[in-house]
Design a protein around this nucleic acid. Structure first.
Length: 391
DNA sequence: CGCTCCCGCCATTAC
DNA sequence: GTAATGGCGGGAGCG
C-alpha cells in the first residue's frame, strides 16, 4: 500500500513530513467534539501516513497521559487534561525510585509505596541496579549468541525491549526535567544520562547515538505538545531542549479555547531557577520574563517539608502545581498530591540534602549501576561492553 | 559537513 | 499462521 514514496514529487519538503507537524495534526484530529476513541488505521489514513509513524506519536503521547491504549488498534483519548496527572505520577515514581535505591531492595520498596491505588503502570522507569543486571545477562547472551541459555530469557528479552521503548524513554526523558531540576538539556546529554553512560568522554557511543535519534523523535512530539521547546545552550550555542511544562492545550492544537491568550506565564519551569549542576551546563535562554515556579519536590534539609508546605512564596496557586485552565478534578489532584507528598517525606528522610545535588545523585545512581553492570559483563562473560562493536 | 530525523526493514509480540 | 507493534539504523535533507 501507500505508494507514497514512489511518486515523491519535486515539492517534497522534509519539514512537511516532520513528526512534530504530524503530531500537531494528529492532536487536532483527536481533540474534537465527541472523539473518545482513536483508531490507528483511521488516523493514519486521515493524516496520510503509514501506521508506523502513528505508533511513534501514540507512544509518546501515551507516556504523558494524553492517550491510553484501549485495545488493539484502539486508543482512547484522554486529552491534554491528562497531562498534569501523568506528570505528577511520573514525578512521584521518580522520587520513589530515587529514595528507593538507597534501600537494599529498591524494587519492593517502590512497589510498596504505590499508594494511590492506581493500577498505574508497571515499570520502573529508571532502571534499578537489579534491572540493569538483568539486562546485562540478556545483553551478554545477545553478544554470545546464546551461550547463556537462560530459561527466562524471553522474559528478560521482553524487559530489555520494553526498556528501550519509545514510551519508556519518553518518560525517563521527562523525568529528567521533573526531578533533576534540569531546565535545559541537549539531546546527547540526555542520551548519556538515560543510558547511564558514565564515562566522561565527550564522544557519543554508538548506542547513545542511536538513542539520540529516538530522542529527536520524542522531542518533536513533546514540542508539538508544548511541553518543551527548542532552544540553545548559551555558552556552547548548541541546540538544546527546554522544559516548559504543562500550560494547557498547545496553541497549535486549539480548536476551542478556554485559555486566555495573554497567558501571563507562558513558561513554567519545573524546579527553581537555581542552577544546580556543573556536569550539565545548562542555561535557560531566550525569554527572561518567565516565572520560575512550581513543584518544590526536593527537600534540601530537615525543615524542607515545612518549607515545601509554604512554598507559595513562589506562586499563588495552592498546591505547587500551576496547571492552567485544564486542571484535573479535585480528588484526583489531591490524591496525586498526597502521594507526592508522601514521597517527599520519604525522600527527605532518606536523603536529607537533596537540592542541588539532585542531578549528581541521579548520575551517581546511573554510574553505579552501570559500573556494576559493566564489571559483571566484562568479568563474568568477558565480553566487550559495546553492543555492536563487532563489525 | 554535521546535525536532524524520515523512512521502512524486519524482529517481536499479540491474536 | 497472520496482523499489529515498534526497535532500529541507513542515509537524505537542511542550515
Amino acid at each position: 500500500m501507500s505508494s507514497s514514496s514512489a511518486n515523491r514529487d519535486h515539492t517534497y519538503c522534509r519539514k512537511e513530513k516532520s513528526l512534530s507537524l504530524l503530531c500537531t495534526n494528529f492532536l487536532k484530529h483527536c481533540d474534537r467534539d465527541g472523539v473518545e476513541t482513536i483508531g490507528l488505521d483511521e488516523a493514519a489514513a486521515k493524516l496520510g501516513v503509514e501506521r508506523r509513524r502513528i505508533y511513534d506519536i501514540v507512544n509518546v503521547l501515551e507516556s504523558v497521559g494524553v492517550l491510553s491504549k484501549k485495545a488493539k488498534n484502539q486508543y482512547s483519548w484522554k486529552g491534554f487534561e491528562g497531562i498534569p496527572k501523568a506528570l505528577e505520577e511520573l514525578q512521584g515514581k521518580a522520587l520513589r525510585e530515587t529514595c528507593g535505591h538507597s534501600a537494599v531492595n529498591s524494587y519492593d520498596c517502590t512497589k510498596g509505596l504505590d499508594d494511590d491505588g492506581n493500577a498505574e503502570d508497571e515499570n520502573l522507569l529508571v532502571p534499578s541496579r537489579g534491572e540493569l543486571r538483568r539486562e546485562c545477562s540478556n545483553l551478554s547472551s545477545d553478544l554470545n549468541g546464546d551461550s547463556l541459555s537462560c530459561s527466562h530469557s524471553s522474559k528478560v528479552k521482553a524487559d530489555n525491549r520494553k526498556e528501550k521503548s519509545l514510551g519508556l524513554l519518553t518518560q525517563n526523558f521527562v523525568k529528567l526535567f521533573l526531578t533533576a531540576n534540569v531546565d535545559t538539556v541537549t539531546l546527547d546529554e540526555a542520551a548519556r544520562l538515560l543510558l547511564g553512560d558514565s564515562n566522561g568522554s565527550s564522544m557519543l557511543t554508538n548506542n547513545s547515538a542511536a538513542k539520540v535519534r529516538r530522542l529527536y523523535d520524542i522531542a518533536n512530539v513533546l514540542t508539538s505538545l508544548n511541553l518543551i521547546e527548542k532552544t540553545q545552550q548559551i555558552e556552547t550555542r548548541r541546540p538544546a531542549f527546554r522544559w516548559l511544562g504543562y500550560n494547557g492545550k498547545p496553541d497549535n492544537a486549539a480548536t476551542f479555547s478556554t485559555r486566555a491568550p495573554n497567558d501571563q506565564s507562558k513558561k513554567r519551569v519545573f524546579g527553581s531557577d537555581v542552577t544546580n549542576l556543573d556536569l550539565v551546563k545548562r542555561r535557560p535562554i531566550c525569554t527572561m520574563d518567565e516565572k520560575p515556579i512550581r513543584v518544590q519536590m526536593k527537600s534540601k534539609d530537615p525543615s524542607a517539608q515545612k518549607q515545601s508546605n509554604q512554598m507559595q512564596q513562589q506562586q499563588p496557586s495552592s498546591k505547587g502545581y500551576d496547571f492552567g485552565p485544564f486542571r484535573p478534578v479535585l480528588q484526583d489532584r489531591e490524591k496525586a498530591m498526597k502521594s507526592t507528598q508522601n514521597c517527599k517525606a520519604m525522600a527527605s528522610s532518606h536523603r536529607p540534602q537533596y537540592r542541588n545535588q539532585a542531578l549528581s545523585e541521579l548520575f551517581a545512581h546511573y554510574s553505579e549501576a552501570w559500573k556494576s553492570w559493566y564489571m559483571e559483563v566484562t568479568q563474568v562473560n568477558n565480553l566487550k561492553p559495546e553492543r555492536k562493536a563487532i563489525h
